[in-house]
Computed example of a mutant assay.
Amino acid sequence: MYTTVNEDGVLNNYATEPQMYYAEYPAIWEQRKYVIQGIFASLIVTTLALVAVSVS
């Protein structure tokens, strides 16, 4: 932790910053996994919307 003291004696604490890195483009199998997750998520949302419409 990085700490500074100003002229009034007030302490300022600063967190250490993490190491930065660039994201890498997802591989083909990761892209397919994201598509499958998107399909399941849209099915869940559609099902919830249909249940809400049918109940009301």
Rank of each mutant, 00 (worst) to 15 (best):
12 N>P: 00
2 Y>N: 01
34 Y>T: 05
14 Y>F: 09
9 G>D: 06
26 P>G: 01
42 S>I: 03
23 A>K: 12
46 T>W: 01
14 Y>M: 14
25 Y>R: 08
12 N>I: 00
3 T>K: 14
56 S>L: 09
7 E>S: 06
3 T>Y: 05
11 L>P: 02
3 T>Q: 10
10 V>C: 04
51 V>E: 06
4 T>S: 07
3 T>D: 11
10 V>E: 07
31 Q>P: 07
24 E>G: 05
14 Y>T: 15
54 S>P: 04
47 T>W: 15
20 M>G: 05
30 E>C: 02
19 Q>R: 10
29 W>M: 15
42 S>N: 02
17 E>L: 07
49 A>I: 12
56 S>C: 01
24 E>A: 08
8 D>M: 00
17 E>K: 08
20 M>P: 09
14 Y>G: 13
36 I>V: 09
25 Y>D: 10
23 A>C: 05
27 A>E: 13
7 E>Q: 11
11 L>G: 02
47 T>L: 15
49 A>N: 06
22 Y>R: 04
4 T>A: 08
38 G>D: 03
21 Y>H: 15
43 L>I: 09
6 N>Y: 00
46 T>K: 05
43 L>H: 05
23 A>L: 07
31 Q>D: 10
45 V>K: 03
56 S>A: 00
1 M>E: 13
43 L>K: 07
27 A>C: 11
42 S>F: 11
29 W>Y: 09
27 A>H: 14
25 Y>F: 08
12 N>V: 00
27 A>R: 12
30 E>S: 04
18 P>D: 04
22 Y>M: 04
20 M>D: 12
30 E>Q: 06
51 V>R: 14
55 V>A: 07
21 Y>G: 03
22 Y>E: 03
47 T>A: 14
41 A>P: 02
55 V>G: 04
21 Y>M: 12
51 V>H: 12
49 A>L: 10
45 V>N: 02
38 G>A: 07
51 V>L: 14
54 S>N: 14
49 A>V: 11
41 A>F: 01
23 A>N: 06
30 E>M: 02
2 Y>P: 02
24 E>H: 11
56 S>F: 10
13 N>I: 15
53 V>K: 14
5 V>G: 02
38 G>P: 00
27 A>W: 14
54 S>Q: 10
48 L>W: 05
41 A>M: 09
41 A>N: 07
52 A>N: 10
10 V>S: 08
8 D>H: 04
43 L>P: 03
6 N>I: 00
36 I>P: 00
33 K>Q: 07
55 V>Q: 04
11 L>H: 06
26 P>D: 01
51 V>Y: 07
23 A>P: 05
27 A>N: 13
4 T>V: 01
5 V>Q: 11
24 E>S: 09
50 L>N: 07
53 V>I: 11
53 V>Q: 14
6 N>S: 09
28 I>T: 07
45 V>F: 11
6 N>D: 15
1 M>W: 03
39 I>R: 08
19 Q>A: 06
31 Q>W: 06
52 A>P: 05
48 L>M: 12
32 R>P: 01
13 N>W: 06
45 V>C: 08
39 I>S: 06
17 E>R: 10
39 I>G: 09
45 V>M: 12
30 E>H: 03
32 R>T: 03
28 I>M: 13
19 Q>C: 00
8 D>A: 02
28 I>A: 14
37 Q>K: 09
54 S>C: 04
43 L>G: 10
34 Y>L: 10
